[in-house]
């Protein structure tokens, strides 16, 4: 076992120990359930009716919102790097989205959209600036010497994208996706809780809160972390695979 895994495992064990001690000190399950109670709840959760539907509901909407942000953020960043007018036109919007609190957007969206679209819109809104800004940065960091070669040989834009921009955008795109998937999950579930979106994980968290079911709340939180990590790893792996395919063709 390598050192990285050992240190990470120690860190998790320390966290669980502190949690156990705190739950003993607090002494009330509805305030802080113990790790054992949460683990017991977590094991039962997948066998309860509606678990898969609830998870799929939130996963589908949050991931769709992220995918929209990925496609639109990438396309607009590529266009903005070519046409500065687009970059300047988008600048105020991107900065407003970055700075306005997500709660404000959620409440505004509750007025504008149906509950079903709320999660998609919020996940999109949070992931978009991260992907757009990073891809734009990657485009701007493209190797100027290779771009000079491309201009000398009148290389068409598609080929320039593949050989000059892709190597430069790749690290920016991968790191932004790593961050943006997690951000989309955080904001998406927050939107579901505030909007009490029917059939969502957010609704389960809300119910756990009002019925003082602390073990449920923490078990669902662990489910969210799991889904977020799985979707992030899966998407980034697929993206890496796709980029490798392009590099090899």
């Amino acid at each position: 076992m390598n050192k990285k895994v050992i240190y990470k495992s120690i860190s998790v064990l320390i966290f669980i120990a502190i949690w156990e001690v705190l739950s003993i000190i607090v002494g009330e399950d509805f305030l802080l359930a113990s790790p054992y109670q949460v683990a017991k709840r977590l094991v039962r959760l997948p066998f309860e009716s509606g678990f898969m539907m609830t998870s799929a509901f939130s996963l589908g909407r949050i991931f769709f919102g992220f995918l929209l942000a990925f496609v639109l953020g990438t396309v607009l960043a590529v266009l903005a790097s070519r046409f500065h007018a687009i970059e300047y036109l988008l600048w105020p919007y991107v900065n407003v989205i970055k700075t306005v609190p997500v709660a404000s957007f959620i409440i505004l969206s509750l007025i504008w959209f149906s509950y079903e679209r709320l999660t998609i819109f919020i996940a999109f809104l949070i992931a978009f600036p991260a992907i757009y800004s990073n891809v734009l940065q990657g485009m701007k960091n493209a190797d100027s010497q290779l771009l000079e070669v491309a201009s000398l040989y009148h290389v068409p834009f598609g080929r320039k994208m593949k050989y000059v921009y892709l190597p430069s955008v790749k690290p920016f795109l991968l790191s932004s996706c790593n961050v943006a998937v997690g951000m989309a999950w955080k904001a998406g579930v927050a939107a579901e809780v505030i909007g009490i979106v029917k059939g969502s994980i957010g609704e389960k968290l809300y119910e756990a809160k009002i019925y003082f079911q602390n073990a449920d709340l923490l078990a669902w939180t662990i489910v969210i972390i799991g889904l977020s990590v799985i979707s992030e790893k899966l998407f980034v792996s697929l993206l890496k695979f796709g980029i490798r395919r392009i590099e090899r063709t």
């Binding site: 491309a150 290389v155 190597p167």
Partner: peptide, 18 residues
């Protein structure tokens, strides 16, 4: 050299000649 380091030798030729 001004080559695209992530790509193969033949791809670097293709970059210019298509």
């Amino acid at each position: 050299d001004r080559l695209s380091e992530d790509f193969s030798v033949i791809s670097n030729i293709r970059f210019v000649v298509g």
